[in-house]
Each structure stands twice: as C-alpha cells, then as structure tokens.
Design a protein around this nucleic acid. Structure first.
Length: 479
RNA sequence: CGGGGCGUGGCUCAGCCUGGUAGAGCAUUCGCUUUGGGAGCGAAGGGUCGCAAGUUCAAAUCUUGCCGCCCCGACCA
C-alpha cells in the first residue's frame, strides 16, 4: 500500500525509480547487498513477459531445457575472451559439504560453457543440427553497483543457445531472435526499440557479432533491452562441438546465444511510468482492469457488489485479467491512487449511481484525471473494456515513440553531439574505431549503443574523423 | 576501490552538539462515525537505540574499532 506522493521524474528520476519499484510492490531489497526479492506483483509481470516470449521461442522451433547452476571454473577459462570478460564478476564456490573442493565451481554468469560441453556430447552429425534450446533461469554476476531490476547480483532471464552447420545459418538465427525480441518489445511491452549491431568494444565476451535492441528511457538514457550473439566457432572450438558434414568432413559448429532479462521490467517502468507511478502496457499487466466499488451504506454495498459480481464474470469470460478491490475500510480515493501507483491500465468504478443508470465508469491510466474518465453502458461493457485496453496499448507505444523520436538528434559535430546526449540519443555518421569510442566515453560518458540495422543508405562524413562513412551509429549515455 | 549519506517500534524519522525514566507521524488492533480522488475521533499493543570494546555513578547520546545498507563515480545485461 502506498500513502505518499512520489518524487517527480523531473525532480529526481533516479529516486523516482527507486521508490516506485518499492512502492508499486514490484520488488524489495534482499538481505544480501545487490540482490533483489521479486514480489508477487513484479513476478506476475515477469511471468507475462515469459509467457509471451516463450510462445515466440516455441513458434520458431526452440525447446526449453534446464542446465546446472554450478559450472567447473575451468570451463570458463577455455574461451579466452569469455574468461577475460567474466572473471572479474564471478561468484565462486570453493567449499562443499564442509570440504574444500578440488576444483572451484562458479555460479553461472551465463551458460555458454556448460551448454557447449553438453552440445559436444550430443552433436555427431549434420543430421543433429540445428540444436535449438532455451532455458529460463537466474544467473549471478558480482556487479559493483546495483539497482533493482536494472543490475542486480542475481538476475532472472532466458538464454537461448543454438548450434548450426554453417555461419549463414547461425547468423540467420542470431538475426531472427533479435527480430523476435524487437517484435516482443514493440507489440507486447509497447517499447519502441532500435535493433542494431554492437561495435567491437561493446561486443559480448566470446562473440563474433553482438546485436541488441536499444530503448530510450524517460530521462533520455539508453537501456540495452535484449541481446543476440553470433558466437562464430569460438565456443565450438573451445568445447569441441564438432559434427560430420554431408561431405564426410568433420567440422566445428557455429553457435549463437541470445538473452533477455528482468531488466526489461526496468525498461517498462522507465519508459511508461509517470509522476503518479507505474503505467503498465495492457498486454503484459498482471491486472488489466481493477474494479473499485463505491458505496455509503450496507444497502448500497449489497447492490453494488451484486452488480460487480456479474460484471466481473463477464469480463473474465471475455479473457480480461480483472481484479476486484473489495478491501474494506479504504476510501475509493485511496484505492484510485493505489492502483495508479501500481500501473493498472484501466480502472472500473461502480457506485450506486452506476447501478441505477446501468453504467460503469472507465478511467484510463494513461490519461490522468477527468480526461481519461468515461461513463459507458453496462450493456456490452466487455467489448468496451477490450477496445479501451487496445487503445491504451497503442497509445503507450505512440507516446513512447514520439518521445524517443523527439530526442534523437542527427549530429555532425562533436559540440552538437555533446548537447544531444544531454537529453537523448545522438545519431551520426561514424567511421571511428575502438580508441575513439573510448575517448568519447571518457569525455562525455556516452557510448556507441548500436549501429542500427536500418540505415539511410547514403554516405556521409564521420562526425569525429571527417572520413567518409557508410553507416550511422547511435550514441547515448546508458544504464 | 574513491566520494557522500544513513543505521533508534513494521515504515519514515526526531532525540545525540550540552550523558540522567526512549519520542513523533504513518502502519497495526479494537470501537464509533465515514466512503464518487489519498477519511475523522477515541483507545490499545509494539523498541537488545547495527555490533563490540572503552570512558562514566550513569551512554541512543562521548571515544575507538568493526559490520551493514543506500546514493554518486570507475566496471557491466
């Protein structure tokens, strides 16, 4: 339950976020630094994200499996850049059953290695390929600075791991899953995202190519919201994943991995939330509509609750996730604020006047105050609710897209660039290298988020080097 | 690891400077009145003051050490 106002986003975006996560009851701090307890409301949101993604994974031919939490430390060391990338943030188990272990075990920071080990055993022939497996799990990375949902020591995600006979197939898979993420982000989470490829310096440790979807948060900063890696033959060589091809030759597989985490919950909060609290996209909201009964005495209460019972049945039958707030002793006003904090897309008020007039009041979360409130006929209300939820879903995407586009600036000079990243993304022709990226980062805190897949097609002069460039890149400060 | 802040009922905090019976608001429980935008009154329960040592007749308060958490920076999904 929430009793006071949040800081506004303009006042202190960071504090707004921290308080909102706690007060909307999405998550809480755990007894261990940097760890998070995902509360039922937050988990319900994650479950909807899972269901929606899982269905897409299955539709593209993937199966779920479960690989172990503990991995021999030596596994991590087999792929040179992988160990270099992850060793600083490993949690290592050295004692088991009171005895020092012969070989330390790491708590998985990601599962390429242990899955690579399994694939080496399972894959014999080109007929075994492709292998398309996903797992839902949590992983641990010993981060220095943490923040609920965005960066915690343990986080929940899915990681897909596939093996293919050719580079082209692996690349196709990598791009397909990036497309799945983008489609999910746009159509389910109402997050406009920019799919693109990472520069060498931002690449996953052990990948040949890393793709990501980048979203703009409500403060103009970027959040990498899903990644897809073409691992080439790096892990196949490290774990000896070979197959006998049609031509009778033994060859190394081409593997991919792709992941999307509970960080996406953070994206939803920071993109759609407003000064009243959370705003959830209807397609993912644990409750799409909340019914608030209004009554002054027992008579009214009986009437109203009876009307609501029928209403609730009808909405549920129409497939709408509806919550009845029958809590005693709280005023309607309190409940309005409470559910606004928790981001329920649509509020349905039912009072004595509604019962008498055969109406209900619908209040849209995305349009505060009277503007978003409408009285509709009780008859056919399920259709009206469904239509309104669709409207809200579309409105959230449109609003977020407009916000983002207004804050992407095409820049041609470093000065313009510095100005652009104060409020959003800078887009520019780019022909620089890793050293220049590092310099830009040191001077401005902005990083190369991605080189968007969608390019204007022309050429231009790199905004830093002046050299001819064939692609534009997106730069921003990022979470 | 650097900088900042904070540890006192479930939560937010006051009290500490200047040592002397542990406080407030919110929450909880009960009662009555309320209920279309964060209700009111009355009563009640609830605290090893982060841990340890020291100073003192006496420590939430002073001293020293330790631990933990949050925020900002470097590193990262």
């Amino acid at each position: 339950m929430s009793e006071q106002k949040l800081p506004t986003r303009a006042e202190d975006f960071n504090e707004w976020y921290n308080q909102l996560v706690i007060r909307a009851e999405l998550a809480d701090y755990a007894p261990v630094r940097g760890c998070m307890i995902v509360r039922p409301y937050g988990w319900a949101l994650w479950e909807n994200i899972q269901a929606s993604l899982d269905q897409r994974f299955k539709a593209t031919g993937h199966l779920n499996a479960a690989f172990p939490l503990l991995i021999p430390k030596s596994f991590l060391e087999r792929e040179a850049s992988h160990v270099e990338g992850f060793s600083p943030e490993l949690a290592v188990v050295t004692i088991g059953g009171n005895k020092e272990l012969e070989e330390p075990l790491v708590v998985r920071p990601t599962s390429e290695t242990v899955i690579g080990h399994a694939y080496a055993k399972w894959i014999r022939s080109y007929r075994d390929l492709p292998v398309l497996i996903n797992q839902w799990c949590s992983v641990v990375r010993w981060e220095l600075r943490t923040k609920l949902f965005l960066r915690t020591l343990e986080f929940f995600w899915q990681e897909g791991h596939t093996a293919h006979a050719t580079f082209e197939e692996a690349e196709e898979e990598t791009r397909r899953m990036l497309e799945v993420y983008a489609d999910f982000a746009v159509h389910e989470a109402a997050l406009p995202v920019i799919p693109g490829i990472k520069s060498e310096s931002e690449r996953f440790a052990g990948a040949d190519r890393t793709y990501s979807i980048e979203a703009m948060m409500g403060d103009g900063k970027a959040l990498q919201s899903g990644t897809s890696h073409n691992l080439g033959q790096n892990f196949a060589k490290a774990f000896d994943i070979q197959f006998l091809d049609r031509d009778g030759e033994r060859k190394f597989c081409w593997t991919t991995s792709w992941g999307l985490s509970t960080r996406l919950v953070g994206a939803i909060i920071m993109v759609h939330g407003d000064d009243q609290g959370l705003v959830l996209p209807p397609r993912l909201a644990p409750f799409q509509a909340v019914i608030v009964p209004i009554h002054k005495n027992d008579d009214e209460r009986a009437q109203v609750m009876e009307a609501i019972a029928g209403l609730q049945r009808e909405l549920m039958a129409a497939g709408i996730r509806v919550k009845l707030d029958a809590r005693d002793g709280l005023t309607p006003g309190f409940k309005f604020n409470d559910w606004e904090m928790r981001g329920v897309p649509l509020r349905i008020e039912v009072g004595p006047k509604d019962v008498a007039k055969q109406t209900v009041a619908l209040a849209r979360r995305d349009r505060p105050g009277k503007e978003g409130k409408a009285f509709v006929a009780r008859d056919g209300v399920a259709a009206a609710v469904s239509a309104t939820l669709n409207d809200i879903q579309a409105a959230l995407l449109a609003k977020a897209t407009a916000f983002r586009d207004a804050r992407i600036r095409d820049v041609t000079t470093y000065d313009d660039f510095k100005e652009a990243i104060e409020t959003g993304f800078a887009r520019a022709w780019w022909a620089g290298d890793a050293a220049l990226e590092r310099q830009i980062k040191e001077e401005t805190k902005a990083t190369l988020r991605c080189i968007p897949l969608e390019q204007p097609g022309a050429t231009g002069a790199c905004f830093m080097t002046g050299r001819p460039a064939t692609t534009q890149a997106i730069f921003a400060r990022a979470y």
